[in-house]
Design a protein around this nucleic acid. Structure first.
Lengths: 190, 190
DNA sequence: TATGGCATTTGACTTAAGTCAAATAATCAG
DNA sequence: CTGATTATTTGACTTAAGTCAAATGCCATA
C-alpha cells in the first residue's frame, strides 16, 4: 500500500511539460484560516484540494454530533469523494483545522484534461485506488479493533497527530466519544 | 450513485471491436460449486471475477469469526480489492454461496491492455469509483445506523437476499451476531 | 419416514462504549 | 495577572449488542 504511494509519486515526477501546464492552468492557490470551511454539507464538491500546508478534516453531522471521516495533512488530497465524483450535494463538510494553503483543482476542467493527457487518467485511478484501500482498512479496523487499540494504532502511525489536532476531532475520527477517548488515554499513558 | 452505473454501462456498450477482442482474450469462463473458494486468504488475487450467474461473498476471519465484507450477484465484480491492486497476499477469501459461473480476468494482462485501450483505463476508474462510493456508504451506515435499521435497510434495498443467502452470512455482512440478527428479525417481522 | 446434522431462535448474563452531569485544567483576551 | 471560555477528565448510570448455552425447527438422505 505504501508502494502505491511511490507509484503515484513516480507518475507525478514523470509528467511531461504539456501535462503539467494543463494541470497548472486548472489549479489555483487558496488559503483558509483555522476554522474556515473549504466545503459545506449540501454544496457540490467542485474542487479537489491539494494541501500545500496545514491540516484539514472532513466530517459530517449525525444527530447533532460531528463525525470526522478523515484528517488531512500536507500533500494529501481533500475531497468529498462521492460528491466530487457524482457532482451531487455533499454529505460532508471540509474544514481547516489549522490555517491552510491549498492548490484547488476544478473538477470539470480536470475531467476535460484527463481525456487529453492519459497520465492524468492513470493518476486519477491510482489516487482513487489509494483512497479505496485506505477506506477498506478503516472499515476493517472498526470491525476488528476496540477503541483502545484503534487509538494506540493511531498513536503509533501518526504520533504527532495528538499535538496538532484537538482531542474532540481525534475522538470523532476514531468513532468514539470524547469521554471514552479520555479514559483510553488515562490507561495507556506511560 | 446509480447514475454512475449507467455511465459504466454506457462505456461498456460503446467499447469498440478491438477493445472487446483484447478483453475477451484475457478472460476465461470458470465455474465453481457452492462452497468452493475463488480465492483463499494468503493468496494473491490475480483475477477479477465478473459474475455471470450465482452468488459469491467476500469475507475474512477475525478471532475465528467470519466477517462477510461483500455479497456479490450477477453482473457484480468480485475482487479482493487491495490484493488485486497491490498484488500482495489477500486478507480476504472469496467463496461461492451458490453454484457460480464467472468470467475471470487476469490482472497482469488487464494492466497491459489498459495501457493500449484507453476506454479500459476509464472503465477501471469508473468501477473503482463505484466501489469506493459503496464503501463510503457502508462505513457511514455502520456509524450512523443500529443493527435493526441496517437490517431493515438491507431488506428494503435487496428484499430477495434473505431467500438466497443464509442468515449467518447476512449477520456477518451486517456486522452483528447471528443471535442479534434473529432478535432483530423477531421484532420486525410483520 | 426416521435420524443425524445444520440453521435458527430463545434465555440469561456480560461487556464495551455511550450519556449526562460535574469537576478540573488549560488557554487566551483584556 | 485574572476572569472567562474552552478543552479535558472523572464519576455514576444506561444501553446496544455480544457471549454462552440450550431448545427448537428444518431439511436431506439412507
Amino acid at each position: 500500500m505504501n508502494e502505491h504511494l511511490l507509484k503515484i509519486n513516480s507518475i507525478i515526477e514523470q509528467l511531461d511539460g504539456d501535462t503539467l501546464g494543463a494541470l497548472g492552468a486548472v489549479s489555483k492557490i487558496k488559503t483558509y484560516k483555522k476554522g474556515d470551511f473549504l466545503l459545506y454539507q449540501g454544496e457540490v464538491c467542485r474542487y479537489g484540494f491539494w494541501i500545500e500546508s496545514g491540516i484539514a478534516r472532513k466530517f459530517y453531522l449525525n444527530e447533532n454530533k460531528e463525525l470526522t471521516t478523515e484528517l488531512l495533512f500536507e500533500n494529501d488530497l481533500a475531497v468529498a469523494f462521492s460528491s466530487y465524483v457524482t457532482q451531487q450535494p455533499s454529505q460532508e463538510f471540509i474544514q481547516a483545522v489549522t490555517d491552510v494553503r491549498v492548490s484547488s483543482i476544478d473538477n470539470s476542467s480536470f475531467q476535460r484534461i484527463k481525456g487529453q493527457f492519459s497520465a492524468l487518467m492513470e493518476l486519477d485511478l491510482l489516487m482513487t485506488e489509494y483512497y479505496t484501500m485506505w477506506l477498506e482498512k478503516r472499515l476493517f479496523d472498526f470491525h476488528t479493533l476496540d477503541a483502545s487499540t484503534r487509538y494506540s494504532q493511531l498513536l503509533r502511525d501518526q504520533p504527532n497527530i495528538i499535538q496538532q489536532v484537538p482531542l474532540t476531532y481525534i475522538a470523532s475520527y476514531l468513532g468514539i466519544s470524547l469521554e471514552t477517548l479520555s479514559r483510553v488515554r488515562a490507561k495507556i499513558k506511560y
